[in-house]
Amino acid sequence: MPETETALPKTASAEAAPPAPPATTPQSGDLVRRHRLSTRLWHWANALALFIMLMSGMMIFNAHAHLYWGEFGANPDRNWLTLGTGQLNAFPGWATIPSNYSLADARIWHLAFAWILLIGAPLYLLWSLVNGHLWRDLLFRRGELRPSHIWHDIKEHARLRFPTGAEALKYNVLQKGAYLGVLLVLLPLIILTGLAMSPGADATTHVSALFGGRQSARSVHFIVAAGFALFIVVHLVMVVLAGPFNEVRSMVTGWYRLPLDKGAK
């Protein structure tokens, strides 16, 4: 997905300055600064951590492939989801860490890499409040949530028509929804439900009560993990459609080439 952060080159007299003169407006084809260092670091730390958490998490799920609502839930109780069979694991070895069945090893990975999400998400959220990233780039602007505007963006996405030139430096409403969903919904939920399943952390915080019990928290943990998987798939598809070299470069180096207008040159 095309992403934006620092759009226009800064002018010296910001307060009284009229809208940036055309000469300094980035044009299609220009190489511009796009992602600040904190975003790039956090992005790649999360990319690594999420893959490991999902893969080791699927192995942990294999140990008891049933989900329940409420405080308790075990084999004699009514579950709402069962994956796999007695013979077959819920998730196959090619998708799990480790690839052979080992609850113990999967927990070693899961509990270690959990720190990246546990520390990274609150720090990034805080930093995004301080540096303005959250309200400047991510929060919805007035009018953006109008159904007609959202519908327009959905149609543009479906036709694979992406913004070009300086317009490509701003998130559209679907992108904002996706990124805000990750930062403000998925990440907090995955952390809180993770803590809720830890008997020690739950004794201190009673956080499982927020979700209606430990087994409900475990179910929500699973559903949110599926949400992350869906986000990753859509995110990667959009990166490929929007030009993978330019997109990956911008997330590695921070520099992004503004897309050319369709048909130009």
Partner: peptide, 8 residues
């Protein structure tokens, strides 16, 4: 809370 994930 069992390490496998179930609770009673």
């Amino acid at each position: 809370d069992c390490v496998e994930g179930w609770s009673a």
